[in-house]
Design a protein around this nucleic acid. Sequence first.
DNA 1: TATTGTTATACTCTATAACTATA
DNA 2: TATAGTTATAGAGTATAACAATA
Lengths: 163, 163
Amino acid sequence: MAVRKLDDEEVDRLAGKADVSLGALENSGGFVLRIAQLAAFERFFTVFGQSEIRISEFTVLLALSENPGIRQGVLADVLKIKWSNMTKLVRALEERGLISRRIPHDDRRSVVLSVTEAGRKQIEASAEKMSQSDRAALSMLSDVEHAQLIALSRKIAGWPETK
Amino acid sequence: MAVRKLDDEEVDRLAGKADVSLGALENSGGFVLRIAQLAAFERFFTVFGQSEIRISEFTVLLALSENPGIRQGVLADVLKIKWSNMTKLVRALEERGLISRRIPHDDRRSVVLSVTEAGRKQIEASAEKMSQSDRAALSMLSDVEHAQLIALSRKIAGWPETK
DNA sequence: TATTGTTATACTCTATAACTATA
DNA sequence: TATAGTTATAGAGTATAACAATA
């Protein structure tokens, strides 16, 4: 072949990464699941990232509004957040007046959380951005596919099928 | 058994969490996708974590064996790894003799990677552990559901449907 | 001037262990 | 002794910017 190696590489460069194959990786559920989550979150953050509240904080706020008076540790367990990390998260929310921490008299070791009025307003303000972000993250899915994704994810997470 | 009483309490604690509802969060594709990915990876690492190679390293190794002679930057782009981080990753693999870095004469800025014989042996040694980990991560899915997951994930990642 | 890769650094997330105060 | 939560710290993983060598 008279064509030099430079030409091959040039072709690759111009064609982009279109012909890069990942072989067995493409059939690894774990791998593709991770890539999908990264891609979805990248799009999610292009919308939600401009918010004044972090997604982890908003998640706590939302979960809290669904479960008023829940203990801090229980909430941490459900959201798969370590207790030590939950402390900081909760403190940050408290300092902004979005949640309240209360020590119940029947077990003064524990901390009981609830959303304040300001927190409720923050939820209202961010809920729309949340669903916008969600749509942006998964806009390529049909309604049926979206439902499939939720069902599969619940199963993988070990959540009950109907709730 | 010493664990007996602990078990009872654990049951109580878990039963307590069963009442916790996440409301709107449970229909957020982004949220459930993330929870699913976390749960899957936790199980994945109980198997793969004991390996002497990291999953990120093994991924690079596998992708490299599928695309011998690929440029470092192209590989980084495909695997969504920043160039600056790829440098360290690749160095670690080279120091262990698993890959080779070569400066092509026609573009001496670039670095061309390939798997060494030792690297090939590492792939062989870890491939089985990889699929074991993958099965452990997603054991709750039927074959059909597994295929659904791959198809949905590819779509979310923006990969072509058939390749 | 633009591109490829490197270095140094910082920032976020997550993980671990020692600690307190209550039970 | 065990539990709920806190503190401090360490470790990944990831991000940014300045830089060198080459094109």
